[in-house]
Amino acid sequence: RTRPERVAADKGYSSRKIRAYLRRRGIKSAIPERLDQINGRLSRGESLCHLDRAAYRRRNLVERCFNKLKQNKALATRYDKRARHYQAMVALACLRLWLP
């Protein structure tokens, strides 16, 4: 596939433009709404957006994994300028996470 089946993002990406773009492309979204958007929908008499909580929880799992990888200083600051060197550092950081 050239496009994802679903996009999971935090509240910072909750906007009408982003949701409309995803709908046009046929991509489902798992983006919670901000409180001001919820209040605006309720005042206009619209229904609230459905949030797939299971997909949003999986997003949190990925975010925690990135956080653990970024604890490696060479990855966080990207000392290696060549892509293959950086990819090797990512592989080493993953090995350090998976090995006891």
Rank of each mutant, 00 (worst) to 15 (best):
K11A: 15
A93C: 00
R19F: 04
K73G: 13
R25S: 06
R16L: 11
I27D: 04
A20S: 15
Q71H: 08
S14W: 01
V7L: 08
L92P: 00
R1P: 08
A8Q: 06
A74D: 12
G26F: 03
R23K: 15
Y13M: 01
A55R: 10
P100G: 09
Y56V: 07
F66K: 07
G45R: 05
R6M: 15
R41T: 00
L92Y: 05
R6D: 09
R84P: 10
C49K: 11
T2V: 10
F66N: 11
K11C: 08
A54T: 12
R84L: 15
K70N: 07
I18H: 09
K68V: 15
R53G: 04
Q37H: 09
L97W: 05
V62N: 00
D52G: 03
N72Y: 10
A88F: 04
R34F: 01
P32G: 01
N72Q: 06
N39Y: 12
Q87R: 15
C94Q: 03
L92E: 03
P100F: 07
V90Y: 13
R96F: 05
D36G: 00
Y13N: 03
R53T: 08
Q37I: 00
A8D: 06
R25Q: 08
D36M: 06
N67H: 12
R41Q: 04
G12L: 01
G40I: 00
K28H: 10
R58Q: 11
M89T: 10
R82T: 14
I31L: 00
L42R: 06
I38W: 02
W98M: 14
L61R: 15
S43K: 14
K73I: 12
R96L: 02
G45K: 04
R1D: 13
L75S: 03
